[in-house]
């Protein structure tokens, strides 16, 4: 998704949808690769938690006075589809895809956080925290 004037709600909806898809992806991997189930489930939990935290911090800071109509001019959001767990050949392919997914997600959060500096500090702080959580996912996956 690229647009010269992405609204805050459009960006937040996009991030939420990406987290939801990633959570499903990891739940699928947990079902397929039982020996690594703990790691995949932990990643799925992290995605679910991010989804709630980002939505909550947005909803709790949005107001008619401060942030309504805020636009992320020049922002480009990666719309690469989240892979399907069932379509992956083996564990190595799963790890490779998961690492790429985590990198895209963390980068997206960092990019949006940078663009969100004009918003109340709660928003960029939450977005950076979400990026941090996705990088932790990546570290867990890389250790498999």
């Amino acid at each position: 998704m690229t647009d010269a004037s992405l609204t805050a709600s459009a960006v937040m909806s996009h991030l939420a949808a990406q987290e939801q898809a990633a959570e499903q992806f990891y739940r699928g991997l947990a079902a397929r690769f039982a020996p690594q189930q703990a790691v995949w489930s932990r990643c799925a939990q992290a995605c679910a938690k991010n989804q709630v935290q980002v939505a909550r911090s947005y909803q709790e800071t949005i107001s008619d006075a401060l942030e309504v109509g805020y636009t992320f001019a020049g922002l480009t959001l990666d719309a690469t589809p989240v892979p399907c767990a069932d379509a992956l050949a083996d564990l190595a392919a799963a790890v490779e895809q998961a690492l790429a997914l985590e990198e895209r997600a963390a980068s997206a959060y960092e990019q949006v956080a940078e663009c969100a500096e004009g918003l109340l500090a709660t928003i960029p702080r939450t977005l950076r925290r979400a990026a941090e959580i996705r990088r932790r996912n990546a570290a867990l996956i890389a250790a498999l």
């Binding site: 609204t7 805050a8 709600s9 909803q59 709790e60 949005i62 107001s63 008619d64 006075a65 942030e67 309504v68 109509g69």
Partner: peptide, 12 residues
């Protein structure tokens, strides 16, 4: 009004 404005109004 826009959905963002409405969400802001709901929050307030």
């Amino acid at each position: 009004k826009t959905i963002d404005e409405s969400r802001g109004e709901t929050r307030r």
